[in-house]
Design a protein around this nucleic acid. Structure first.
Length: 405
DNA sequence: TCTGGGGTCCTAGGACCC
DNA sequence: TCTGGGGTCCTAGGACCC
């Protein structure tokens, strides 16, 4: 299989080119800051009308958000995705802060993927700004080793979205993803099997999609820092240190082997909503506030399920204490549901099973073991056949108020 | 005033069944 | 007193990704 990996560059304000700008921080908080500084909300609109000097700066930002993305000028200061805003403010206090406009992002994301599917239909979704593409059977796809098709995609994406896009071309997904980073932004890079040694082996292990901070640290402790050093290890040695599955996978990855197909459709496994509080809350002292938030989260998950046509059977809660330790509790129902009241009641039971003496910084609600709503009703009819004696009974659910349990 | 929100996948132990 | 394996489901935690 030949694969592209394509990612769009989502920051697209030409007038800010060369300026340090970060986007992120949690929309409402940044909107508030904007409103205060300029009298205008909504980053997109504000950008057109407000002189750059009037934008809020990172040093004035107050809150718990993280950075979603940053201009290259901001990255020069060491600022980058997923970094806390407070830490970023120390590195680059004068960076301009803009809110994330998720509706806008989703709109451009859709247009980006549509533009690609028109040219190459085998596309795998990897979030808002990334896709894998299998171009093996796209007419003319092999011309120039894939370069002319990649150029065509870039042109089409630019036309339809105004966004630039970086594309990696390789014999499989693993290498294509790495290749896409070689030439950012708006670049194309082609990596062939024969380039493994020269282009992939010198890279840090962390560049492999699937090796995160933990594995990287463990590898470093074993004195392995590059992919080449990883490839030089016996597979048995890797298995001894990382377990059967991970060890074998690492060995394959280091040798550029990856047989995963481009997966064009998949069903969701779970849906969830969570929120980090502006200040840490206490289960007893802030019970009313916490209870209201909890109910809202359940209602939102229920809405999400209903809008997308799913029901679920496992209700879970997640919370994070002020020391950042996370805890989860699951509770499986006898029937599938997308009902806010049922979710709220079951989640309440799960929450009861968790110690609530420490302050909380985050609360979340998740529904898992999902089924399409229509498949669930078919299942219900099947089990409701006379012989089985009446089918699945709905458990009566008591009414709830905005309290914790 | 370090550390968002929405996901997937893996592991490992215990219950329970055959 | 002792004692198999395999399979499935459920739960909790954690690594990782965008």
């Amino acid at each position: 299989m030949d694969a592209f990996f394509a990612s769009i560059e989502l920051l697209r304000y030409p007038q800010l080119k060369g300026l340090p700008v970060v986007i992120g921080g949690g929309r409402r908080r940044v909107d508030d800051a904007l409103l205060e500084a300029t009298g205008v909300a909504q980053g997109e609109r504000a950008l057109r009308f407000i002189p750059v000097d009037d934008f809020p700066r990172l040093k004035d930002y107050v809150g718990r958000g993280v950075i979603t993305t940053a201009t290259y000028a901001a990255r020069q200061f060491g600022v980058g995705s997923a970094m806390g805003m407070m830490k970023a403010a120390k590195l680059c206090p004068d960076a301009i802060v803009l809110p994330v406009d998720f509706d806008e992002v989703r709109k451009y994301s859709r247009a980006f993927k549509e533009a690609i599917r028109e040219v190459a239909p085998l596309v795998e979704d990897r979030g808002v700004d990334e896709v894998y593409i299998d171009f093996t059977d796209v007419p003319g796809g092999q011309r120039g080793g894939g370069r002319s098709l990649a150029r065509l995609l870039q042109r089409s994406i630019l036309e339809k979205t105004g966004l630039t896009c970086s594309i990696g071309v390789a014999p499989n997904k693993l290498i294509a993803k790495m290749a896409s980073e070689f030439n950012k932004p708006n670049g194309i890079s082609i990596v062939q099997e024969a380039d493994l040694q020269s282009m992939i082996w010198p890279l840090a292990c962390r560049k492999i999609n699937g090796i995160g901070p933990k594995s990287d640290a463990k590898l470093a402790a074993l004195n392995i820092h590059t992919i080449g050093e990883m490839a030089a290890q016996e597979i048995g040695w890797l298995i001894d240190h990382f377990g059967q599955a991970t060890g074998a996978w690492m060995h394959d990855a280091a040798w550029g082997r990856d047989l995963r197909p481009v997966v064009t459709e998949s069903e969701p496994v779970s849906m969830s909503r969570e929120t980090t509080f502006e200040r840490d809350l206490h289960a007893v002292r802030d019970k009313a506030e916490l209870g209201a938030v909890f109910t809202r989260l359940c209602e939102k998950v229920a809405e999400d399920l209903q809008r997308k046509g799913y029901v679920g059977k496992t209700i879970g809660i997640k919370l994070r204490y002020d020391n950042f330790q996370s805890v989860t509790r699951d509770q499986t129902l006898t029937h599938y549901t997308a009902d806010a009241t049922t979710i709220r009641q079951t989640a309440g039971l799960a929450l009861k099973r968790v110690p609530l003496t420490k302050k909380l910084r985050l609360l979340g609600v998740r529904v898992g073991t999902l089924l399409k709503t229509e498949d669930a009703s078919a299942l219900q009819k099947l089990s409701a056949l006379p012989a089985s004696g009446g089918g699945i009974a709905e458990e009566p659910v008591p009414p709830y108020r905005d309290q914790l349990f």
